[in-house]
Design a protein around this nucleic acid. Structure first.
Lengths: 165, 165
DNA sequence: CAAGATTGATTCTTCAATCTTA
DNA sequence: TAAGATTGAAGAATCAATCTTG
């Protein structure tokens, strides 16, 4: 009688094949590629700072809470990110005229300039992320990620506030 | 003459549709679901701590560098993670007999017990991550993520060291 | 010098608590 | 009280520098 034990000591499924682990690795690689492109271009914007900066540009005078909702950041995270963007001279934080509790955000001319300069690098990073896949596969991966995220948005701690339909 | 401006002020493509942003959101949701399952089960293991603990169980007496390679963690990250697992009594860190520089890691009986207890929660979290997709879509998402990660592994700052084949 | 490990610094994430203002 | 914002704490990721040991 022959008994075969494959991964007998492994109660859970192979960790490396778990969705959670793949999510972590995927994000890890995406950040790494973004950093590499920024460094090559001579800038040090992080992915998070870039997303915030673009969103401020597209939504002039947004307050921080709204900005957080637009890109699914924690309110606490926003404070630090804006601190650093302000320190770099890319964003200005102003007390709202209509509500002194709120801080409205404006991109500076240097911020606009930086965004313009790094655009090719950002695009290159995004393409690099999908460079291991065919065009069709890349599109399908994007579609499945969007579908997954939309389905679970409300169960996330920091749900995305729909900005556009 | 009519000129149509769609996203005219948006130099880069919509940030929310960029692979890098989707990677961040996907990871954010995956971590959130894992935390929710752990909390419901009465444990406070993080996804990172869980991955390390499982890998230590499957590779008795691994040193920290090898462990880092197995799950694509930075050597520096490992130190803190093992600190916390040791503090919780789930792992023991021992100076290697053959190389006093190295620390070999062993899972404790309580660590084994915890892994056994949380197994259903871990599995539930993994299924929850894919709950917005059909079975076929979930499998396809996993396949595309694996393919992407394998293709870019070497361009990551912390490449995964193949543990098996 | 090279390798395993650790510490420090910076950024990001999340929660709890606090401060100011409505 | 509620809302916008901030600070503190803990975990994590990455790089630079350091310490110990080979």
């Amino acid at each position: 009688m022959i008994s075969i034990h494959v991964n007998a000591e492994c109660a859970v499924r192979d960790n490396l094949e778990m969705p959670g682990h793949l999510a972590r690795r995927f994000q890890q690689i995406a950040v790494s590629l973004f950093h590499a492109e920024m460094e090559a271009a001579g800038y040090d914007l992080t992915p998070v700072q870039f997303a915030a900066l673009v969103t401020i540009q597209q939504n002039p005078n947004v307050d921080q809470i709204t900005l957080a909702g637009l890109i699914a950041y924690d309110r606490t995270t926003i404070t630090g990110v804006i601190d650093r963007l302000t320190r770099k001279g890319l964003v200005v934080r102003t007390v709202s005229d209509t509500d002194r509790r709120a801080r409205t955000l404006q991109i500076t001319s240097e911020g606009v300039s930086v965004l313009r300069d790094i655009e090719p690098s950002v695009e290159a990073a995004q393409q690099a992320i999908l460079s291991g896949l065919s065009a069709a596969e890349g599109a399908e991966l994007m579609r499945l990620l969007v579908k997954t995220i939309e389905a679970l948005n409300e169960r996330s701690r920091v749900p995305l506030k729909s900005a556009r339909g």
